[in-house]
């Protein structure tokens, strides 16, 4: 029991150290720009299609649900407003982060894990290359930079999906829909939705890198760390989203 507690604390300490060093590697030489570009391409353009596809259908489903429910209350014209707030402040950032964790997070954990098992990380150290700067920093910064971009694209596509359903299925006014969206694009809502992806990106990359680099025990170990990276990222995203929402609502002066 005592050993387990000690081991747990050691993991936590190592995770904090890796996260801090991974982040600070972005402002200290040497910079591995080629790796940054590769990782940004993998995380960003590699995830674009799946983000667009899922966001489109989520936007359409949300619009359908709300149109049906609001029309029973005679408030169908508010569909755009409710859908817009839900997507921009909550569903967009969380959904994109979950897709990102599933695709990019698992990729990072399995890639780094197989590099550990194949002694490639040890080889880097033998050559005097800091694995955190070479492997972790490009992944952490690419996640921090790319997840917000993907979130903006995902939000936009979701809103178009919602617009399509509201106008062509629910027969609402397209002009009113867009004017509702314009009304909610205020500083508080945009800020509340745009801070989250930076933090989610950082958390996903750090968890996935840490899990990947602590892989032990062959193929089974690799499966274990990849699964752990995704599951832990999902849990952390949901919990962090609640905490961030609470803090941001308070800071931005919303009353609950």
């Amino acid at each position: 029991m005592k050993y387990r507690v000690k081991e747990g604390l050691q993991h936590l300490q190592d995770f904090y150290r890796l996260s801090f060093q991974g982040l600070m590697g972005g402002v200290r030489q040497p910079f591995y720009f080629k790796d940054w570009i590769e990782q940004m391409d993998y995380a960003g353009s590699g995830s674009l299609f799946i983000v667009v596809l899922i966001s489109l259908f989520i936007g359409m489903a949300l619009s359908l649900q709300l149109s049906a429910e609001l029309s029973r209350l005679g408030l169908k014209m508010y569909t755009g407003k409710v859908v817009g707030i839900s997507i921009i402040r909550e569903i967009g950032p969380v959904l994109t982060a979950l897709i990102f964790a599933g695709r990019v997070g698992s990729g990072i954990a399995s890639e780094l894990g197989s590099m550990v098992l194949g002694h490639q990380v040890d080889t880097l150290r033998v050559f005097g290359v800091d694995p955190i700067k070479k492997l972790v920093t490009p992944r952490v910064w690419s996640a921090i930079l790319m997840l917000p971009v993907l979130t903006i694209i995902g939000d936009t596509v979701s809103l178009f999906g919602a617009y399509y359903i509201a106008v062509f299925v629910s027969h609402q006014s397209g002009t009113f829909f867009w004017s509702s969206i314009r009304d909610i694009l205020i500083y508080e809502n945009v800020l509340a939705g745009s801070i989250k992806p930076f933090i989610f990106g950082f958390l996903i990359a750090c968890i996935s890198c840490y899990m990947g680099l602590s892989t032990k025990g062959g193929a089974i170990g690799l499966r274990r760390t990849t699964t752990r990276a995704v599951v832990l990222s999902f849990i952390v995203i949901i919990v962090a989203d609640f905490i961030l929402t609470r803090v941001l609502l308070y800071l931005l002066g919303f009353t609950v």
């Binding site: 590099m115 194949g118 002694h119 490639q120 040890d122 080889t123 150290r125 033998v126 050559f127 005097g128």
Partner: peptide
């Protein structure tokens, strides 16, 4: 340790090439 490591040439099992 960088100074120590350059005194050696280490070849890992199966080569450990960067794939």
């Amino acid at each position: 340790l960088r100074e120590v490591r350059i005194k050696f040439s280490m070849v890992f099992q199966e080569g450990a090439l960067f794939d």
